[in-house]
Nucleic acid binder design. Structure first.
Lengths: 149, 149
DNA sequence: TTGCTCCTCACGTCACGTGAGGTGGC
DNA sequence: TTGCTCCTCACGTCACGTGAGGTGGC
Protein backbone atom coordinates (compact mmCIF):
# COMPACT_ATOMS: atom_id res chain seq x y z
CA UNK A 1 0.00 0.00 0.00
CA UNK A 2 1.28 3.42 -0.83
CA UNK A 3 1.51 6.08 1.83
CA UNK A 4 -0.90 9.01 1.59
CA UNK A 5 1.84 11.42 0.58
CA UNK A 6 3.34 9.58 -2.36
CA UNK A 7 6.82 10.26 -3.63
CA UNK A 8 6.42 12.82 -6.41
CA UNK A 9 6.46 10.91 -9.71
CA UNK A 10 9.86 11.40 -11.20
CA UNK A 11 9.61 14.22 -13.74
CA UNK A 12 10.90 13.12 -17.12
CA UNK A 13 12.27 15.48 -19.71
CA UNK A 14 11.45 15.18 -23.37
CA UNK A 15 14.52 13.15 -24.30
CA UNK A 16 13.82 10.44 -21.78
CA UNK A 17 10.11 10.35 -22.61
CA UNK A 18 10.93 9.99 -26.30
CA UNK A 19 13.55 7.27 -25.75
CA UNK A 20 11.26 5.25 -23.50
CA UNK A 21 8.32 5.60 -25.87
CA UNK A 22 10.50 4.64 -28.82
CA UNK A 23 10.54 7.93 -30.70
CA UNK A 24 12.35 11.29 -30.90
CA UNK A 25 11.94 14.63 -29.12
CA UNK A 26 11.06 16.24 -32.43
CA UNK A 27 8.09 13.93 -32.83
CA UNK A 28 6.88 14.69 -29.31
CA UNK A 29 7.11 18.43 -29.96
CA UNK A 30 5.34 18.05 -33.28
CA UNK A 31 2.50 16.11 -31.68
CA UNK A 32 2.19 18.71 -28.97
CA UNK A 33 2.06 21.41 -31.64
CA UNK A 34 -0.87 19.57 -33.24
CA UNK A 35 -2.60 19.29 -29.88
CA UNK A 36 -2.15 15.54 -30.02
CA UNK A 37 -0.95 15.24 -26.46
CA UNK A 38 -4.05 16.76 -24.92
CA UNK A 39 -3.02 19.93 -23.07
CA UNK A 40 0.59 20.78 -23.72
CA UNK A 41 2.20 19.23 -20.62
CA UNK A 42 3.74 21.21 -17.79
CA UNK A 43 6.92 23.18 -18.06
CA UNK A 44 9.40 23.75 -15.28
CA UNK A 45 10.83 27.15 -14.44
CA UNK A 46 13.44 26.69 -17.14
CA UNK A 47 10.71 26.28 -19.74
CA UNK A 48 11.51 22.61 -20.21
CA UNK A 49 8.63 20.25 -20.85
CA UNK A 50 8.02 17.72 -18.09
CA UNK A 51 6.35 14.33 -18.25
CA UNK A 52 5.59 11.39 -16.00
CA UNK A 53 5.26 7.63 -16.25
CA UNK A 54 1.68 7.85 -17.41
CA UNK A 55 2.79 9.95 -20.37
CA UNK A 56 5.31 7.27 -21.28
CA UNK A 57 2.58 4.64 -21.36
CA UNK A 58 0.20 6.82 -23.35
CA UNK A 59 2.71 7.92 -25.96
CA UNK A 60 4.14 4.43 -26.34
CA UNK A 61 0.70 2.88 -26.76
CA UNK A 62 -0.47 5.49 -29.23
CA UNK A 63 2.71 5.21 -31.31
CA UNK A 64 2.37 1.45 -31.40
CA UNK A 65 -1.16 1.79 -32.73
CA UNK A 66 0.01 4.28 -35.34
CA UNK A 67 2.90 2.16 -36.53
CA UNK A 68 1.22 -1.21 -36.58
CA UNK A 69 -2.07 0.01 -38.03
CA UNK A 70 -0.63 2.65 -40.34
CA UNK A 71 -2.78 5.44 -38.92
CA UNK A 72 -2.43 9.07 -39.95
CA UNK A 73 -2.07 11.70 -37.26
CA UNK A 74 -5.69 12.63 -37.94
CA UNK A 75 -6.75 9.07 -37.16
CA UNK A 76 -4.49 9.13 -34.15
CA UNK A 77 -6.15 12.30 -32.92
CA UNK A 78 -9.38 10.40 -32.32
CA UNK A 79 -7.65 7.57 -30.51
CA UNK A 80 -5.92 10.10 -28.28
CA UNK A 81 -9.17 11.89 -27.56
CA UNK A 82 -10.66 8.60 -26.47
CA UNK A 83 -7.59 7.87 -24.33
CA UNK A 84 -7.95 11.28 -22.73
CA UNK A 85 -11.62 10.71 -22.05
CA UNK A 86 -10.72 7.38 -20.51
CA UNK A 87 -8.17 9.04 -18.21
CA UNK A 88 -10.85 11.51 -17.15
CA UNK A 89 -13.19 8.64 -16.37
CA UNK A 90 -10.46 6.99 -14.34
CA UNK A 91 -10.31 10.10 -12.18
CA UNK A 92 -14.08 10.29 -11.93
CA UNK A 93 -14.01 6.67 -10.76
CA UNK A 94 -12.09 7.64 -7.66
CA UNK A 95 -14.47 10.45 -6.73
CA UNK A 96 -17.64 8.39 -6.63
CA UNK A 97 -19.04 5.32 -4.96
CA UNK A 98 -22.20 5.30 -7.03
CA UNK A 99 -22.52 1.84 -8.54
CA UNK A 100 -24.56 3.04 -11.53
CA UNK A 101 -21.92 5.60 -12.42
CA UNK A 102 -19.12 3.13 -11.94
CA UNK A 103 -20.94 0.68 -14.16
CA UNK A 104 -21.20 3.30 -16.90
CA UNK A 105 -17.49 4.15 -16.60
CA UNK A 106 -16.49 0.52 -17.02
CA UNK A 107 -18.81 0.07 -19.99
CA UNK A 108 -17.28 3.03 -21.74
CA UNK A 109 -13.82 1.68 -21.09
CA UNK A 110 -14.87 -1.62 -22.62
CA UNK A 111 -16.26 0.11 -25.71
CA UNK A 112 -13.03 2.05 -26.12
CA UNK A 113 -10.92 -1.09 -25.90
CA UNK A 114 -13.27 -2.91 -28.29
CA UNK A 115 -12.75 -0.25 -30.97
CA UNK A 116 -8.97 -0.63 -30.81
CA UNK A 117 -9.14 -4.41 -30.75
CA UNK A 118 -11.30 -4.42 -33.83
CA UNK A 119 -8.81 -2.32 -35.78
CA UNK A 120 -6.00 -4.62 -34.67
CA UNK A 121 -7.91 -7.76 -35.60
CA UNK A 122 -8.77 -6.37 -39.03
CA UNK A 123 -5.08 -5.83 -39.67
CA UNK A 124 -4.33 -9.31 -38.42
CA UNK A 125 -6.69 -10.74 -41.02
CA UNK A 126 -4.99 -8.78 -43.79
CA UNK A 127 -1.57 -9.96 -42.67
CA UNK A 128 -2.75 -13.54 -42.40
CA UNK A 129 -4.11 -13.34 -45.96
CA UNK A 130 -0.73 -12.12 -47.13
CA UNK A 131 1.07 -14.85 -45.19
CA UNK A 132 -1.28 -17.43 -46.69
CA UNK A 133 -0.63 -16.32 -50.25
CA UNK A 134 3.12 -16.45 -49.63
CA UNK A 135 2.81 -19.94 -48.18
CA UNK A 136 0.75 -21.02 -51.19
CA UNK A 137 3.48 -19.79 -53.52
CA UNK A 138 6.05 -21.58 -51.44
CA UNK A 139 4.09 -24.83 -51.56
CA UNK A 140 3.88 -24.54 -55.35
CA UNK A 141 7.63 -24.12 -55.70
CA UNK A 142 8.20 -26.97 -53.28
CA UNK A 143 5.98 -29.21 -55.34
CA UNK A 144 7.86 -28.37 -58.51
CA UNK A 145 11.10 -29.15 -56.75
CA UNK A 146 9.73 -32.54 -55.75
CA UNK A 147 8.81 -33.24 -59.38
CA UNK A 148 12.37 -32.54 -60.46
CA UNK A 149 13.78 -35.35 -58.39
CA UNK B 1 -3.28 -25.40 -73.48
CA UNK B 2 -2.71 -22.04 -75.11
CA UNK B 3 -2.10 -21.81 -78.82
CA UNK B 4 1.43 -20.89 -79.88
CA UNK B 5 0.37 -17.42 -80.98
CA UNK B 6 -1.33 -16.16 -77.85
CA UNK B 7 -3.78 -13.31 -77.87
CA UNK B 8 -1.69 -10.20 -77.15
CA UNK B 9 -2.05 -9.44 -73.43
CA UNK B 10 -4.51 -6.58 -73.17
CA UNK B 11 -2.46 -3.41 -72.79
CA UNK B 12 -3.50 -1.48 -69.71
CA UNK B 13 -3.06 2.24 -69.31
CA UNK B 14 -1.85 3.80 -66.11
CA UNK B 15 -5.30 4.58 -64.72
CA UNK B 16 -6.48 1.00 -64.96
CA UNK B 17 -3.23 -0.39 -63.60
CA UNK B 18 -3.46 1.96 -60.63
CA UNK B 19 -7.12 1.18 -59.92
CA UNK B 20 -6.56 -2.57 -60.08
CA UNK B 21 -3.46 -2.38 -57.92
CA UNK B 22 -5.28 -0.19 -55.40
CA UNK B 23 -3.38 3.06 -55.87
CA UNK B 24 -3.21 6.20 -58.03
CA UNK B 25 -1.54 7.10 -61.34
CA UNK B 26 0.60 9.64 -59.52
CA UNK B 27 2.05 6.93 -57.32
CA UNK B 28 2.86 4.74 -60.33
CA UNK B 29 4.60 7.64 -62.07
CA UNK B 30 6.52 8.48 -58.91
CA UNK B 31 7.71 4.90 -58.51
CA UNK B 32 8.75 4.80 -62.14
CA UNK B 33 10.69 8.04 -61.60
CA UNK B 34 12.56 6.37 -58.72
CA UNK B 35 13.28 3.36 -60.90
CA UNK B 36 11.09 1.26 -58.66
CA UNK B 37 9.27 -0.43 -61.51
CA UNK B 38 12.41 -1.87 -63.06
CA UNK B 39 12.75 -0.46 -66.57
CA UNK B 40 10.22 2.25 -67.22
CA UNK B 41 7.54 0.22 -69.01
CA UNK B 42 6.69 0.57 -72.66
CA UNK B 43 5.01 3.54 -74.21
CA UNK B 44 2.69 3.49 -77.16
CA UNK B 45 3.00 5.88 -80.08
CA UNK B 46 1.02 8.44 -78.13
CA UNK B 47 3.60 8.40 -75.36
CA UNK B 48 1.19 6.74 -72.98
CA UNK B 49 2.61 4.18 -70.58
CA UNK B 50 1.38 0.63 -71.17
CA UNK B 51 1.18 -2.25 -68.72
CA UNK B 52 -0.02 -5.85 -68.63
CA UNK B 53 -1.56 -8.28 -66.14
CA UNK B 54 1.82 -9.22 -64.73
CA UNK B 55 2.42 -5.57 -63.84
CA UNK B 56 -0.89 -5.51 -61.98
CA UNK B 57 0.16 -8.49 -59.88
CA UNK B 58 3.60 -7.11 -59.18
CA UNK B 59 2.48 -3.63 -58.23
CA UNK B 60 -0.40 -4.93 -56.12
CA UNK B 61 1.84 -7.36 -54.26
CA UNK B 62 4.55 -4.81 -53.65
CA UNK B 63 2.08 -2.19 -52.41
CA UNK B 64 0.53 -4.71 -50.05
CA UNK B 65 3.95 -5.44 -48.58
CA UNK B 66 4.64 -1.75 -48.20
CA UNK B 67 1.34 -0.96 -46.53
CA UNK B 68 1.12 -3.93 -44.21
CA UNK B 69 4.78 -3.92 -43.22
CA UNK B 70 5.25 -0.14 -43.20
CA UNK B 71 8.21 -0.26 -45.57
CA UNK B 72 9.90 2.84 -46.96
CA UNK B 73 10.41 3.12 -50.69
CA UNK B 74 14.07 2.34 -50.08
CA UNK B 75 13.08 -0.92 -48.40
CA UNK B 76 10.66 -1.56 -51.21
CA UNK B 77 13.42 -1.09 -53.76
CA UNK B 78 15.13 -4.23 -52.52
CA UNK B 79 11.95 -6.26 -52.59
CA UNK B 80 11.31 -5.12 -56.15
CA UNK B 81 14.84 -5.98 -57.20
CA UNK B 82 14.30 -9.47 -55.85
CA UNK B 83 10.95 -9.69 -57.66
CA UNK B 84 12.65 -8.64 -60.87
CA UNK B 85 15.39 -11.20 -60.41
CA UNK B 86 12.72 -13.80 -59.82
CA UNK B 87 10.95 -12.85 -63.06
CA UNK B 88 14.26 -13.21 -64.89
CA UNK B 89 14.70 -16.66 -63.38
CA UNK B 90 11.21 -17.59 -64.51
CA UNK B 91 12.23 -16.79 -68.07
CA UNK B 92 15.50 -18.68 -67.68
CA UNK B 93 13.44 -21.64 -66.50
CA UNK B 94 11.74 -21.91 -69.86
CA UNK B 95 15.01 -21.84 -71.80
CA UNK B 96 16.66 -24.78 -70.09
CA UNK B 97 16.06 -28.42 -69.35
CA UNK B 98 19.12 -28.75 -67.14
CA UNK B 99 17.96 -30.21 -63.84
CA UNK B 100 20.79 -28.67 -61.84
CA UNK B 101 19.96 -25.21 -63.12
CA UNK B 102 16.26 -25.71 -62.54
CA UNK B 103 17.02 -26.84 -59.02
CA UNK B 104 18.99 -23.68 -58.37
CA UNK B 105 16.20 -21.50 -59.77
CA UNK B 106 13.63 -23.08 -57.47
CA UNK B 107 15.92 -22.75 -54.46
CA UNK B 108 16.37 -19.05 -55.12
CA UNK B 109 12.62 -18.62 -55.44
CA UNK B 110 12.19 -20.35 -52.09
CA UNK B 111 14.76 -18.08 -50.44
CA UNK B 112 13.03 -15.02 -51.83
CA UNK B 113 9.65 -16.12 -50.54
CA UNK B 114 11.17 -17.03 -47.17
CA UNK B 115 12.50 -13.49 -46.70
CA UNK B 116 9.08 -11.97 -47.28
CA UNK B 117 7.36 -14.51 -45.08
CA UNK B 118 9.74 -13.76 -42.25
CA UNK B 119 8.98 -10.04 -42.40
CA UNK B 120 5.26 -10.78 -42.42
CA UNK B 121 5.50 -13.18 -39.50
CA UNK B 122 7.54 -10.70 -37.48
CA UNK B 123 4.77 -8.17 -37.93
CA UNK B 124 2.20 -10.75 -36.98
CA UNK B 125 3.97 -11.30 -33.69
CA UNK B 126 3.98 -7.57 -32.96
CA UNK B 127 0.29 -7.30 -33.76
CA UNK B 128 -0.51 -10.34 -31.65
CA UNK B 129 1.37 -8.77 -28.72
CA UNK B 130 -0.71 -5.64 -29.12
CA UNK B 131 -3.93 -7.65 -29.34
CA UNK B 132 -2.92 -9.58 -26.22
CA UNK B 133 -2.30 -6.44 -24.20
CA UNK B 134 -5.67 -5.05 -25.26
CA UNK B 135 -7.38 -8.29 -24.28
CA UNK B 136 -5.61 -8.22 -20.91
CA UNK B 137 -6.91 -4.70 -20.29
CA UNK B 138 -10.36 -5.81 -21.31
CA UNK B 139 -10.25 -8.78 -18.93
CA UNK B 140 -9.24 -6.45 -16.11
CA UNK B 141 -12.18 -4.14 -16.74
CA UNK B 142 -14.49 -7.12 -17.04
CA UNK B 143 -13.32 -8.42 -13.70
CA UNK B 144 -13.95 -5.07 -12.03
CA UNK B 145 -17.42 -5.04 -13.52
CA UNK B 146 -18.08 -8.44 -12.07
CA UNK B 147 -16.99 -7.24 -8.64
CA UNK B 148 -19.49 -4.38 -8.83
CA UNK B 149 -22.44 -6.74 -9.00
C1' DT C 1 32.85 26.29 -15.21
C1' DT C 2 32.10 22.41 -18.34
C1' DG C 3 28.91 19.08 -20.79
C1' DC C 4 24.77 17.52 -21.89
C1' DT C 5 20.09 18.32 -22.85
C1' DC C 6 16.80 21.43 -23.66
C1' DC C 7 14.60 25.53 -26.32
C1' DT C 8 12.66 27.84 -30.79
C1' DC C 9 12.96 28.96 -35.54
C1' DA C 10 13.36 27.36 -40.06
C1' DC C 11 14.76 24.89 -43.99
C1' DG C 12 15.10 19.94 -45.90
C1' DT C 13 13.04 15.45 -47.11
C1' DC C 14 10.01 11.60 -48.20
C1' DA C 15 5.90 10.10 -50.47
C1' DC C 16 2.96 11.45 -52.63
C1' DG C 17 -1.79 15.05 -53.76
C1' DT C 18 -3.40 18.46 -56.66
C1' DG C 19 -4.12 21.71 -60.02
C1' DA C 20 -2.36 24.02 -64.69
C1' DG C 21 -2.05 23.70 -69.42
C1' DG C 22 -1.72 20.72 -73.20
C1' DT C 23 -2.07 16.32 -76.22
C1' DG C 24 -3.98 11.51 -77.52
C1' DG C 25 -7.34 7.64 -78.56
C1' DC C 26 -12.17 5.31 -78.90
C1' DT D 1 -16.03 16.56 -82.95
C1' DT D 2 -16.72 15.61 -78.07
C1' DG D 3 -15.26 13.37 -73.63
C1' DC D 4 -12.30 10.98 -71.06
C1' DT D 5 -7.75 9.73 -69.95
C1' DC D 6 -3.26 10.60 -70.57
C1' DC D 7 1.09 13.71 -70.46
C1' DT D 8 4.65 16.87 -67.96
C1' DC D 9 5.83 20.52 -64.91
C1' DA D 10 5.49 22.39 -60.51
C1' DC D 11 3.73 23.82 -56.20
C1' DG D 12 1.36 21.95 -51.83
C1' DT D 13 1.13 18.77 -47.85
C1' DC D 14 2.00 15.47 -44.16
C1' DA D 15 5.15 13.82 -40.78
C1' DC D 16 8.72 14.50 -39.36
C1' DG D 17 14.72 15.11 -39.75
C1' DT D 18 18.30 18.22 -39.20
C1' DG D 19 21.15 21.93 -38.32
C1' DA D 20 21.59 27.03 -36.32
C1' DG D 21 22.01 29.76 -32.48
C1' DG D 22 20.94 30.25 -27.81
C1' DT D 23 19.63 29.02 -22.78
C1' DG D 24 19.12 25.75 -18.59
C1' DG D 25 20.28 22.19 -14.91
C1' DC D 26 23.40 18.50 -12.41
Amino acid sequence: MSSPTQAPPRALRIGELAARAGTTPRTIRYYEELGLLGGQGDRDAGRHRLYDEEDVERVAHVLRLKELLGLSLEDLQRVVEAETARAALKREWRTTEDITIRHRILDEALAHIAVQLELVERRQVELEDLAESLRARRALVHRRRGELA
